[in-house]
Design a protein around this nucleic acid. Structure first.
Lengths: 337, 337
DNA sequence: ATGAAAGCGCTAACAC
DNA sequence: GTGTTAGCGCTTTCAT
């Protein structure tokens, strides 16, 4: 109660209850080897003294921190906050705390974050970055603590990951756009160096074109950043090129394109169709509402965290790479037959 | 490198370098009382062995965890992720890690989170909840570790906090709407039990009306939750009542109202004006773009974190309650003269 | 069912 | 400058 109160320790409880520290420890940790009457006695003292076990001391002694690390690219992004929500819910279900870190600009940032987390003795790490450098990738593979990718992909399938089948998602979307009569379809993504964009999404895009006998042209692929302004710029770049539809890999970027198109008097979806990728609330806010691939963000986070608990517990896991089903939510930016 | 490698400890480094643990500790902690040549020698061994100090052990010995706790209402909310970004940036500047927790539904949740954080020996806590129960409030006041409210207010000014002057903000906005010719103006907020809504915002609203000689009617105050659907429902409830303008305390809610109005053929801002409160990206995505009070979210977070570092450091702080300047960004949902 | 005691890896007096 | 050593608060054998 009093600000100057010394913290109550296990020793205080042991003394007051007239038992040893070991017994108090057993009670606190739910060990069954304690007589019910002793147990009660100890519990009473704990309540009376408001004893709160020191997690740091416990961590040092037991070599478990019941804390996991979360590395994400950008705290301001809705996409990641939704993933994080799934992670958080499962984590608290299993009594884990989350140390949150986000990638800062600058070389070696991920390296630094990773090391910081290890220094804090986290029991596991969830990585949500879109890209990963080779150095840190290797470290993760050999790491003492398990690592799971959420909403990201390990091309080499060494690290456990949870995501959706990006190739198929894009292929399906582009096929849909082709079936709607479009022949010149744009692919608008972020950094093509990230596997998810440059490899999977691009591949799905190319497959769909090929299946339809449309020749691929890199002119129709736009690489940019995820912002409204970038979207407007992309629109400027493509609106005279005869492109009639676009698949966009980020909702904010898509909203930028959509608004630029609408603001310039284009009829959507009659003259221009657009599909985005994250199905965040932005899809419902935009007018027309945006058609989107619906990644089960919350579930990806939740499953990734569940997977991590298994790994931390040395349990068997069936598949290193889990692909969750996605859906396709048709709204106002596409002609839906 | 090898998965089975034992962790390198300070003892290993000390032995290899032929010095004592204390010296290694000094080197690691940048203590100057070390001869340069010894320092080099130790550093070399640290590099060679890839020694990484164990933060948990350090925490136990030094009684500092260089970790702070963050309690926020909802991880999926853009508002909070922006605040969190400011916190994160300053935190990493001062080498603090963040343990992130979010309020779950159910009684006693905040109590539980608070205790968990204390158990983990965090050096400080930032609280971003809109409301707070009396029990936990008292505990925070008497807490061994400093607590700062970010984007929240302590009515009793006992706990340090960073925010904007909500009363004035709303008063100014409502005055603006009155000056635009509106007489029947709605106040649309979340839970009126939270001081920020029920006390400050309501007060600002009433002051503005009073100043203009307009009588207050609770019929024009709408209490609801923060979602698009809720916004649509509010629109339904108010569109026949002669209300011609609204101040809304959440962007998502505002977007819901705006879209419902526009979708039903209302001309905005000619027939209906709307001002929202958080100036998140939603304001730019919506059509027309939404006029908003611009809380400096990032800054609130950053200043709160900076304040916390001072408190953790027992430095003097000038003001317990910091009100940051806000601005008023006029966009398309108001008639701007 | 319970207790004694040896650490966990580090910091911080204190001594030299 | 550098080393010695006593904790920090807890878990975990190992006895009993």
């Amino acid at each position: 109660m009093d600000k100057s109160d010394k913290e109550i320790t296990i020793t205080d409880v042991a003394k007051q209850a007239g038992v040893s520290m070991a017994t108090v420890s057993r009670v606190v940790n739910g060990n069954n080897n304690v007589k019910e009457t002793t147990r009660q006695k100890v519990m009473d003292v704990i309540d009376k003294l408001h004893y709160r076990p020191n997690a740091v001391a416990r961590g040092l002694a037991s070599k478990k921190s019941t804390t996991i690390g979360l590395i994400l690219p950008n705290m301001g992004d809705l996409l990641y906050s939704n993933l994080a929500k799934g992670i958080d819910d499962v984590a608290s279900m299993y009594k884990y705390n989350i140390i949150l870190t986000s990638l800062k600009n600058g070389i070696g940032s991920e390296q630094q974050l990773f090391n910081d987390l290890l220094a804090k003795q986290v029991d596991g790490i969830i990585y949500m970055g879109e890209t990963i450098s080779n150095d840190i990738y290797k470290e993760m593979c050999n790491s003492r603590v398990p690592v799971v990718f959420a909403g990201a992909i390990d091309e080499q399938q060494q690290i456990s990951s949870v995501n959706i089948d990006y190739v198929k998602a894009v292929r399906d979307v582009v096929k849909f756009l082709i079936d709607n009569g479009n022949r010149k379809i744009a692919l608008v993504t972020g950094d093509l160096n990230s596997p998810i964009n440059g490899k999977y999404r691009l591949e799905g895009y190319q497959q769909a074109l090929e299946n339809a006998g449309i020749s691929y042209s890199s002119d129709n692929v736009f690489e940019t950043v995820y912002s409204l302004q970038a979207g407007a710029a992309v629109w400027d770049a493509m609106h005279d090129s005869g492109i009639t539809a676009a698949f966009v890999s980020n909702d904010l970027l898509a909203a930028g394109i959509l608004n630029a198109a609408v603001d310039s008097g284009i009829q959507v979806p009659e003259e221009f169709e657009l599909v985005t990728s994250s199905n965040t609330i932005l899809c419902d806010v935009a007018r027309p509402k945006m058609t989107s691939v619906a990644q089960p963000l919350y579930d990806i986070g939740a499953v990734a965290m569940r997977m991590l608990t298994k790994l931390m517990n040395d349990e068997e896991i069936n598949d290193k790479t889990i692909s969750l089903p996605y859906s396709f939510v048709k709204r106002g930016t596409t002609k839906n037959n």
